[in-house]
């Protein structure tokens, strides 16, 4: 099940690339991820929209409309783009093909990151468990105090790229954006074979991508300004949030210290104890790894947060099943 989830995400990301490549081949007019849409209606990359207006000092109605649409999408879907449509995680899987043999669920993405994050939460979790248990049992995750995510390095890069665009007068981040470069490379390869268009760009673009994605391995969590933008508005997201059924969760129902959901989360969120996670729930990419890896299927990602059921009934059911 867990493997399937990863596989589905790979398939979706590949399908997005394939669709855009077909668009290139057929002059379809769907654009790339940077300006996805039909003909003159595009969902413009929010960074591009802001960058272009700051750089040209012009009010561009299309860009403003696109920004509003993107923010609404972020409020509805959080950072789902990161886990499902972005080509970057897909490209980073290339790293898994070399080097150390892939771990089961190679997802074990950013291993050390998880380990340290996991260590923190577990250690403090153990100590606090008995004390916090009562509280978390009563409230569950739905009513936990909303953790305000911290600003991190990505937000600096977001600010720096917009400032640079305003000072130097062109959308600076677009030059090195790995999403844009991915599709630029696909287009150049098509032109190389289609019309014999030979250029050093064909060497430079993959080099930039390798430096960004394979050398800096934590592009998404430490550097990507697009992720930073999405995390800023992710605070407003309430839909598709991981929600724990306390009657099934091993921690609340059995009093064990299971931390599997926290360990598999590529963003380092602990759905059981979001307030103690290194990052807030606004970073959730809706990748569903916690849902599919939960040993008791206690996690769900409902469209809307569900009101808590009276705990008694469910506990009984759970015990019946266990017996």
């Amino acid at each position: 099940m867990a493997k399937n989830n990863t596989r589905i995400r790979i398939i979706v990301a590949v399908a997005v690339i394939a669709l855009i490549t077909i668009g290139f081949a057929t002059n379809g007019g769907i654009g790339t991820i940077s300006a996805f849409g039909w003909s003159d209606i595009s969902i413009l990359c929010p960074l591009g929209a802001l960058g272009t207006m700051l750089a040209s000092k012009l009010f561009v109605p299309r860009a403003v409309i696109a920004l509003v649409i993107v923010i609404v999408l972020i409020i509805l879907l959080g950072r789902a783009f990161c886990a499902w449509a972005c080509p970057v995680p897909l490209l980073q899987r290339i790293r898994g093909l070399f080097g150390k043999p892939a771990k089961p669920d190679a997802e074990a993405a950013d291993d050390e990151n998880l380990e340290t994050a996991g260590a923190d939460t577990t250690a403090s979790g153990i100590a606090a468990l008995s004390a916090a248990e009562a509280a978390s049992l009563k409230g569950g995750c739905g009513s936990c105090a909303e953790k305000r995510g911290k600003l991190d390095s990505r937000h600096f890069i977001l600010g720096g790229s917009l400032l640079s665009a305003a000072i130097f007068g062109f959308p600076v981040f677009c030059l090195v954006c790995p999403i844009g470069l991915t599709f630029a490379f696909i287009l150049l390869v098509m032109r190389l074979f289609g019309s014999g268009d030979v250029t050093w760009s064909l060497v430079i673009i993959p080099l930039i991508l390798i430096v960004e994605l394979l050398v800096f391995r934590k592009w998404c969590s430490k550097l990507c300004p697009l992720a930073a933008f999405m995390s800023l508005f992710g605070f407003l997201n309430r839909t598709f949030r991981p929600q724990i059924d306390d009657s099934k969760c091993l921690v609340s129902a059995k009093g064990t210290s299971c931390t599997i959901c926290a360990k598999v989360c590529p963003e380092g969120i602990d759905p059981r104890r979001p307030e103690e996670s290194p990052v807030g729930m606004n970073e959730c990419t809706k990748c569903r790894e916690c849902v599919v890896n939960c040993p008791t299927q206690a996690l769900k990602m409902p469209l809307l947060p569900k009101a808590k059921l009276p705990a008694g009934n469910d506990n009984d059911k759970q015990e019946e099943q266990a017996a």
């Binding site: 002059n27 940077s34 272009t52 750089a55 007068g169 062109f170």
Partner: peptide, 14 residues
């Protein structure tokens, strides 16, 4: 130069 975000839409549509 100040407005182009290199989105590749014009190449695609041409």
């Amino acid at each position: 130069v100040s407005a182009c975000i290199r989105c590749e839409k014009c190449y695609e549509i041409c």
